[in-house]
């Protein structure tokens, strides 16, 4: 596993000057070849903005204010537009929740695939057709749907088709932003399963963005938790599942009703995320936190601490240690 994408100190704002809203603040995140990195958080936590900024798709008024994104050694944010477009789709693909909008409603699926490949330099029609059929087989959409129009497909089929479209150019990294949120559990499950199978076969990395932590627990190698624009915890999937450290992560883990266990009342997370236009001075989660320490949490913004190798958290309960070793 080698480093594929490196996000360093990324800060993204909407608008300019004193009224700018910082949607992503000082986020570090690395994605290695072939791994699944999950990003979880509530709506408005900055997870989608992070994905847009990291792929150079951020539109004004959104602006990268600080930090950078390196993909395979090159500075993605300083690439000229033409080179950036080439990197995207050939190297980095995106799959969004609103799959219907990606597919052109008046073109047959087959033609959309051929167009996409032609636009990216695959001129041999035979090769293009072969590749299309191959990815359709991979995502388990029957080949007869190649001749269909998008509206003739069910929601699940459509989302599989969009995933197939993102795969046809054999990217090395796919960003998936809530790709299954609009779908039913069974379909969602099946799609996640085929994405994982594909990843093993084709060896691409996935950044999976969702508000549903329970999905990530099952599919992600590493999970990053975002809150109010900050990355508040990052750990391997099993580690985060067994030992969530940040009170927000702990609360998120408790926010799912269990399937099997005896039913008992669970507490949701009280309150709401803070207004990004007027973020309180201390920890952004302090107002909703059950373990808040007055005088510290509400005044000092916690720094990221490495608690154990591969597990870092930004919370005053785990003071910054110089060795980067044991927790307090």
């Amino acid at each position: 596993m080698s480093l594929l994408l490196e996000i360093a100190g990324l800060t993204v704002g909407y608008g300019a000057g004193p009224t700018a809203v910082l949607a992503v603040q000082d986020v570090d995140l690395a994605v290695h070849t072939g791994e699944v990195v999950g990003i979880a958080g509530e709506s408005g936590c900055g997870k989608s903005t992070l994905a847009l900024a990291a792929t150079g798709l951020l539109d004004p008024p959104g602006r990268v204010l600080q930090g950078g994104v390196r993909y395979a050694g090159q500075d993605l944010l300083r690439l000229p537009p033409a080179a950036l477009r080439h990197v995207r789709l050939r190297q980095i693909a995106m799959v969004f929740q609103a799959s219907m909008n990606v597919l052109n409603p008046v073109l047959r699926i087959r033609d959309q695939f051929l167009d996409a490949m032609q636009a990216h330099g695959i001129t041999s029609r035979r090769e293009a057709v072969e590749r299309t059929q191959a990815v359709f087989e991979l995502v388990k959409v029957p080949a007869r749907f190649l001749d269909a129009y998008p509206h003739q497909l069910s929601g699940g089929m459509r989302q599989r088709t969009v995933i197939a479209l993102s795969l046809v150019l054999e990217p090395r990294l796919i960003f998936m932003d809530e790709p299954t949120t609009a779908l039913d559990v069974v379909v969602q499950r099946a799609i996640l399963q085929s994405v994982n199978d594909l990843r093993v076969q084709r060896d691409f990395a996935v950044v999976f963005i969702t508000h549903d932590l329970s999905l990530l627990i099952e599919i992600a190698d590493r999970i990053a938790i975002m809150y109010a624009g900050y990355l508040v915890e990052e750990a391997s999937g099993p580690e985060l599942y067994q030992q969530p450290l940040h009170p927000y992560t702990q609360a998120l883990m408790q926010a799912f009703p269990p399937l099997g266990a005896v039913r008992s009342r669970l507490q949701g997370i009280p309150g709401q995320p803070p207004d990004l236009r007027q973020l309180p001075p201390g920890c952004p989660f302090a107002a909703r936190c059950g373990k808040v320490r007055q005088g510290t949490c509400d005044t000092v913004r916690p720094a990221m601490t490495i608690v154990t190798p591969g597990h870092r958290v930004a919370c005053h309960l785990y003071p910054v240690s110089t060795e980067g070793g044991k927790q307090a």
């Binding site: 499950r189 799912f256 099997g260």
Partner: peptide
């Protein structure tokens, strides 16, 4: 049974390897 298997279950343990057949709509 299919629905039960497809539902995410964080409390149920780490099930990454688990397969289930969800073909069809």
């Amino acid at each position: 049974q299919l629905l039960r298997k497809a539902a995410p279950d964080p409390q149920g343990g780490f099930r990454r390897g688990e397969r289930f057949d969800a073909s069809g709509e």
